[in-house]
Design a binder for these strands. Structure first.
Lengths: 200, 200, 200, 200
DNA sequence: AAGTAATCGAGACGGTACGTCATGTCTTAGC
DNA sequence: GCTAAGACATGACGTACCGTCTCGATTACTT
């Protein structure tokens, strides 16, 4: 559904930031990315699609990457939360990895994530912002998850928490990036082999 | 080193394809990618840098992605060959993974590989060509490597050869993509945990 | 003198059409035509010379021919008006023909006229536009001039007004096109022979 | 009819100039001019159309204008000869003017003539060559025609022979250039008014 | 008869200009 | 003060021709 419908034009806002314009932009960006890919995601197209002036976009976002970061952060807070159970078990981690798998393959927001990972390769500024606003904070919570599990004796990975997380998530992201379907049993085997759960 | 020096103009070749022009383009593309990133990699810049007419590029390459594919294929044949030892051992695979690590972190051609993986997320045509020309053939040889090792009893992974390869390579690529340094011990642990080498 | 001097950049105009850009383009086109001929009159050169973006030209003019038409119409309204005296005499027509002669040989805008006549031979679309915007309206006023003179009994041409006008103007244009100087007495003889003035 | 038919390729010529290639080029130029106008008359199109290599054209003609000059000269020698009757009468001149009218309006070669007149406005080199090779020689014969008629007492123009010729031919060319049909009675009136034939 | 030279087709080459598109900055005018 | 609208300079896109060049085959003059 297009963000801007002709029959109900968004009322002009006046002097404070227009929340409906903000949402229209985020949704338009999402729609365009899914429909036409990153190449079709031009600022002009977003503006047209959102029924918003280009300048309104440039006023609030320094680049279209930041728009995508905004949508990604909002969406993945909701649909890919890092588990906070106390204490976490191997099953907790396994569930999270399955969520990551589902997010990357089925959720439109997963496409945003993959697109941003891709864009970090093309532009160092994107890389920095992506780490600062998404990867870093998420990794903090992931690290905490593993650390608490280890402390509770739920599992005992050979590697440190960060390296373990890379080893667990890396294959899933890699399959998603290369367009391969995630092999059945991959997540289970990764958890068994790398996390080394302790029998409860 | 620039491919075209003003004082010694490349001799016009005549009616057959000009090999020196081809090399100048490949080197210019490589240089520009490393120096200025993918955004600085415009066809016009390549042409300027290589001392070549734009049309010469469009005559032989349908897009700048194909230029990068050409450089990647030539470079990774030379500097990242899939081992062909008979029979392969766990050590063979470990060595290959270390080569992948080195290729991605130290070799300029590694940047080309990461860039192309990224570009596949932005453009489906690139994804197809990248799989056809690079990923597919390489994966065939990698699968063969694992299959032969399993047959020889050198290792016994839980997963099938393709999934095992994804699980081994995925973390390395993921770290490279996110700009993280590859954790010490990662390769060793992956091999031990996922490949499950048999004592010889 | 170039239309755009670096030390005094044209102020950006904003959301309405930039009149100074329009004039800069018209003058640049004129200058380039006179200095370098029609071959030197590329859109890129006009843009460079006028200190204007190519897109600004394409936004307002569908082709460089329309630019020339604009300059021609503005200039020939000013410097080659069709006489409107009431009633016109043979002397009025003779004066107009001398103005045509002077316009074609001495005025820079005359070169624009000759260039456009030439371009109509190369491009049917130009021919149509040239007739619609220049030749037609002018011929209407010329026809009116002759018709009024005939009605007033000032002259009595054998041919109809249009044919008479062709017979009077044709030789002047032909000489200008072939680069020949207009022969002395040509205008007088044409008026005497073809217009057949009545003694007052 | 195309100059080069696929089923009967022109035999390669060998060491002397290939007459059939020359004719193929001239015909292709003519065809392309008539069909697609001067803009469609590119050297590459001529070469393609004539089944000839571009270099073959550049070997023998310095520019496409010279190709057109060649066709024009050959055609107008045949189909628009300057009368050589001794002595010429007013009727001779009238007949020649009618031939000019027919040539410009009905003959494909007339389009070549108009195109070249046009091109002289765009390129001074063309102007020079056109005068040297076409206009000059033809005017010499036209001048001779009038001079002989005057000497024989057949007519007595007010103006000199050159100016008279301009006054006679100018209107016809002007009408042809502007795409107007030549008005009925124009030629007759021009002859009567400007040539002033003497009763025999 | 062999060697030389000129011609031909084909087409690659370094260029210039084309007309289109998206970028990010700016101004105007309405709310 | 924010908005929609949109003009603007910039610069890359991919295409079409330009005029020069080199190739290998073909043919005719020269010795």
């Amino acid at each position: 559904m297009p963000a801007a419908s002709p029959q109900s034009p968004r009322p002009r806002s006046g002097s404070r930031r227009d929340e409906s314009a903000r949402l229209a932009v985020l949704h338009a960006a999402d729609d365009l990315l899914v429909e036409h890919g990153f190449s079709g995601l031009t600022v002009e197209a977003i503006a047209r699609h959102a029924g918003v002036a280009k300048q309104t976009i440039y006023r609030w976002w320094p680049s279209k990457v930041e728009i995508l970061l905004d949508t990604l952060i909002e969406d993945s807070e909701k649909r890919l939360p890092v588990p906070t159970e106390q204490p976490p078990t191997a099953e907790t981690v396994r569930g999270y990895l399955r969520d990551v798998e589902r997010f990357l393959t089925d959720d439109p927001a997963g496409k945003v994530l993959l697109t941003l990972i891709a864009q970090t390769q093309h532009d160092p500024a994107t890389a920095t912002r992506f780490r600062e606003r998404y990867l870093g904070p998420r990794r903090d919570r992931e690290r905490d998850l593993l650390t608490r599990g280890i402390a509770a004796g739920a599992f005992a990975p050979e590697l440190g928490p960060d390296a373990t997380m890379d080893a667990l998530v890396g294959p899933i992201v890699y399959c998603a990036l290369t367009g391969a379907s995630i092999p059945a049993g991959l997540v289970d085997t990764l958890v068994e082999s790398l996390l080394r759960p302790r029998p409860s």
